[in-house]
Design a protein around this nucleic acid. Structure first.
Lengths: 82, 82, 82, 82
DNA sequence: GTGGGTTTGTGGCACC
DNA sequence: GGTGCCACAAACCCAC
């Protein structure tokens, strides 16, 4: 395949990759927006947003600890071929 | 409505809010994961991830700058009552 | 060197570090104050602070973008071993 | 004074203001850089940067409480003409 | 384990 | 006063 041909393909591929990522980042931004809205709604119902965030962070941390335990278990299991 | 009733509703409401947010954060994490995968795929096709990220960042800066300019134009307009 | 001696030195060192940082943060706050004053002065001369800030932001974005482009150019160069 | 003349003066003034602010922001960035360096140095001497930051934040908070007290005192004094 | 980049959280500020 | 916004600071995560 010619050098030029390869470059064209690479360019198309690059364009495709960039588009996909940008599309996904839009999605991410949209979700972030949704989250903000929920917080706003909560605030309007008298909840303290800062506290809310802390609570959610704690809940997440606990889950992470759990995930960590499971990961360690997974390591043991794979090491022991169980 | 009784104090207890109010508390129950608040508790339900709080639970609901937290659930909604956690659900949305899962979505966000999933999208972030997708993005990472696209980068990984690109890397496996020989693209330089760091450069890719820079390119996407530059494109985003362009968009942001455009938005800023529109914003500033709007400000001038309102300042001049046009 | 004794444990106590080490602790004393560490304490002195820590004190010194904290002092240096706090001094620098004062400097930073002072500069921030100066900036605020300049905006205030500008406002009193009839300039629209919000627009001013937008302008300065745009100029900074230009600079940042330039820096990004140089960065990306450098990345390409190193990628191509030029 | 002619309209054009006024505009020229305003333009000069604007340029001056923008320059002053940009200069000050550079100063601020430089100080921020210094702070970062001190943290880096501290880290290389075995100090925990995260803890350091917390300590400094606490010390700052206390000073703010103090400042608040003094401010209230100032309000009383001015109210009482002392 | 160190640095860089990204993302999140927090405080300040201006406007309503 | 309270609300949304913006900028700074901190935490996190990955890659080297």
């Amino acid at each position: 395949m010619s050098e030029v041909m390869t470059q064209v393909i690479a360019k198309d591929h690059l364009t495709q990759i960039v588009s996909r990522i940008e599309r996904l980042e839009e999605d991410k931004a949209a979700v972030a927006e949704d989250i903000k809205e929920v917080y706003g709604e909560a605030k309007s119902h008298g909840f303290d947003v800062k506290i809310l965030k802390q609570v959610i962070k704690l809940r997440k941390m606990d889950q992470d600890k759990l995930a960590e335990q499971e990961e360690i278990l997974g390591l043991y299991r794979s090491a022991l071929d169980v």
